[in-house]
Design a protein around this nucleic acid. Structure first.
Length: 721
DNA sequence: GTGCCTCGAGTTCC
DNA sequence: CTCGAGGCAC
């Protein structure tokens, strides 16, 4: 903790003792300044997800005192008054940075079978036999936070956090204070993005917490949180005082290749002056990987820093390139995780939450227990069957072992994040523990909660009548990817939903809010938590979204089975709202031209199609949607065709044996170039790639007069791309 | 019908 | 982040 953080804590205690009506103007002014800083810090801590926060009660007390002082000394109200903030934007003060090359996450392997399957998949994709040599690198997976460092002409010009993988935060000033991160490089490529992990050692973490305790500062729950909190300080001076370290293990944009192999690239990074992990090794085949894993696991306790597994990567970079990426993960790497830490505690209650689709989700309320450095008090119980001990998927709960309130349960954090229950100790079950009876009615609205055959979840049938569903739908509506309205998040939605004077009960209400506020005597700007400035900012943010792309609108509607990807497909097919609306109004489920057109779209099946039609033809739902659309200007969605590739927008069929690449690989590459790959030849096919042994498909192509090329022709065609 | 591969939905903690 | 399930290829 810095001196300034310390001062704040002391100042609050001191100021809070004086009754508001006895404050002098000077004292009030000083205290408002301190409160603004303290509340701002609490907001940041809350949103930035890395530091322990003050309690809700303490936070409310601060806000109340701030409001009280402002009420008595209105002339002293600060421009940055916390009363005028609807909810602090996360980490204001850090600029956003778009990564030149996306920062992906890794697929996880939890046991040896997963690792073997990973190896198998790669061999299949590359067309390698089981016994062909295939080298991997393995390195410990550091438990810290990833960072991308951009060097131009040997100078560090930018450091960015991972963020959502596409856009991270600019933490350059902070990165410059980390000793392990070179500020200049000799002999580096002109453009070099180095990626790695920022972490804190056990010893440094313990010393930091000890220091924090002496100075009365907040202590951190674990080294990872300490590292995250330290890197994301707005004051780089604080970061400088924190003992952060950095291991390099990957790269982003490069003006020239570092090497032809993964291990060669790591060695090159080490040569440039980066710390690379000493337990990095090059190994052959699955046995080699597993041997290395056991070795690392055995040394884990003595490393002096946290690791949570071992990462395997295909060593040959040309093979990595051929393997490419799935939507969020590379095909050529996997993280083999160590078994999760376990803890026993008591299940004190089971609560039911209602989601936006009406799904009833049981949540375990636990006696708080520390698991993997974090205190856990809730855990998901998935669904009815999981509690009853019937887990059709072969999950951790064994057949016939139900979960009852009062039970001792074993908790772990899946993927080191989501708390789950692994086991029940039947020997410690209280004699009076009763099997849990899953509610047959919605706990929020009393409507019947039904389970459709073959469905794992029970759903509230209340639809829009159910307040829980309505609120959750609204939260989804304003979420990122949907309308994404600044200053109108989950918290504000809860508040407006419960409001009697200016309610938001359905999406359309958001866009009439300003008009209703204008006609209302109890103005929003006079309320707790709002001010003139924040109110007008909110109204502006809402206005900005009145014009909305069709895909976003469709996603925002929260139609079951229609997610971000589906919405985007549907939008580019229909183009405009009127076209979509007309088709959905005329469509019948399972028949007719509109139905055929809908299910004919690549990526749309009967389930999604039915859901769309049902929703758009359901009276109440449709009326609500119409009221919304009347408030909007829906932008036309143009078909996105990848440009600049010779096969963009074309439909291609592969047939026969491909000799230089597997079919999966050919498909992936064609799609990456903007082509659509179909399974059979039709009049819509633009190009057929026929290998040896091609039969009926090649003949049909000839009959239809469709261009047919062989594999070499195909490679030549896409060679430049 | 089976077996990928993705997407959708729900959830926790800070 | 994980699980379940939709969509599609074989």
């Amino acid at each position: 903790m810095s001196d300034s953080e310390q001062e704040k804590g002391a100042a609050i205690k001191q100021g809070a003792g004086i009754a508001v009506d006895r404050l002098t103007t000077a004292e009030a002014k000083a205290e408002l300044s301190r409160l603004a800083a303290e509340i701002g810090a609490a907001n940041r801590a809350y949103h930035a997800e890395d530091a322990p926060e003050i309690s809700d009660a303490a936070y409310d007390a601060l806000k109340q005192r701030n409001a009280a002082i402002e009420a008595r000394f209105p002339e002293l109200k600060r421009a940055d008054s916390p009363s005028g903030q609807v909810g602090a934007a996360p980490s204001d003060g850090f600029g956003k940075v778009r990564h030149a090359v996306r920062m992906l996450s890794l697929e996880n392997a939890f046991d040896e079978t997963d690792v073997a399957e990973f190896d198998q998949r790669i061999r299949r994709f590359l067309g390698l036999s089981d016994d062909a040599p295939l080298a991997y690198t393995a390195e410990p997976k550091i438990d810290g936070l990833s960072l991308s460092l951009r060097y131009e002409n040997g100078a560090l010009v930018q450091a960015a956090t991972r963020g959502d993988g596409e856009v991270g935060e600019n933490v350059t000033a902070n990165a410059l204070t980390i000793a392990d991160i070179p500020q200049t490089l000799a002999g580096a490529p002109e453009i070099l993005e180095v990626r790695g992990e920022v972490y804190m050692s056990h010893a440094d973490f313990a010393a930091l917490n000890a220091r924090q305790e002496v100075t009365g500062g907040k202590t951190f729950a674990n080294p990872r949180n300490a590292a995250a909190g330290s890197l994301r300080q707005l004051d780089a001076g604080i970061t400088r005082a924190r003992p952060l370290r950095f291991f390099a293990y990957a790269w982003g944009e490069l003006s020239e290749p570092l090497s032809t192999t993964q291990h060669g690239a790591i060695a090159r990074l080490a040569g440039l002056g980066f710390q690379t992990n000493p337990l990095t090794d090059r190994l052959d085949g699955v046995e080699g990987l597993l041997r290395h894993y056991k070795d690392v696991e055995a040394r884990r306790a003595a490393l002096g820093y946290d690791i949570d597994g071992v990462v395997y990567k295909v060593d040959d970079l040309r093979l990595q390139e051929r393997l490419g990426f799935r939507s969020t993960t590379p095909r050529w790497a996997i993280a083999h995780k160590f078994p999760a830490e376990l803890a026993w505690t008591v299940l004190e209650a089971i609560d039911i939450q209602v989601g936006r689709t009406g799904a009833l989700s049981p949540v375990a309320r636990l006696r708080p227990v520390t698991v993997g450095g974090v205190v856990v008090s809730n855990a998901t119980l998935h669904n009815e069957d999981y509690i009853a001990g019937r887990d059709s998927t072969g999950g951790p709960i064994r057949e016939g072992r139900d979960i009852r309130v009062g039970d001792w349960v074993q908790v772990y954090r899946a993927g080191d994040v989501i708390p789950k229950i692994k086991d029940v100790d039947l020997s410690r079950r209280p004699a009076d523990a009763e099997p849990y009876v899953f509610p047959g009615v919605c706990p929020e609205c009393g409507s019947a909660a039904l389970r459709e055959p073959g469905d794992a979840v029970r759903r509230c049938a209340g639809g829009l009548i159910c307040p829980a569903q309505a609120v959750e739908k609204l939260k989804h509506f304003v979420s990122r990817g949907a309308f994404d309205i600044e200053g109108l998040g989950a918290k504000q939605i809860e508040m407006f939903f419960a409001d009697d004077l200016l309610p938001i009960r359905e999406p359309a209400d958001i866009f009439t809010l300003a008009a209703r506020d204008g006609a209302n005597l109890a103005k929003l700007a006079n309320r707790d938590g709002f001010g003139e400035k924040s109110t007008s900012k909110l109204f502006e943010a809402i206005e900005e979204r009145r014009e909305i792309p069709l895909a976003r609108l469709l996603f925002a509607l929260g139609i079951r089975h229609l997610g971000e990807a589906g919405a985007s497909i549907i939008a580019s097919h229909y183009g405009t709202w009127p076209a979509f609306e007309a088709a959905m109004t005329a469509a019948r489920i399972g028949e007719g031209p509109e139905w055929d057109d809908l299910v004919g779209i690549d990526g749309v099946g009967a389930v999604m199609a039915s859901s769309l039609i049902t929703t758009m033809q359901q009276e109440a739902e449709r009326a609500s949607i119409d009221r919304l659309v009347a408030q909007l200007e829906v932008q036309e969605s143009r078909r996105v065709v990848a440009e600049g590739s010779p096969v963009a927008g074309k439909t291609i069929v592969f047939t026969g044996t491909l000799e230089k690449m597997s079919r999966a690989e050919a498909k992936a590459r064609a799609e990456a170039l903007g082509a659509k790959v179909a399974g059979s030849v039709s009049a819509k096919t633009d190009l057929v790639v026929a290998g040896p042994g091609a039969g009926s498909k090649a003949k049909k192509a000839t009959d239809l007069g469709i261009e047919t090329i062989d594999e070499d022709g195909w490679l030549a065609l896409i060679g430049g791309a």
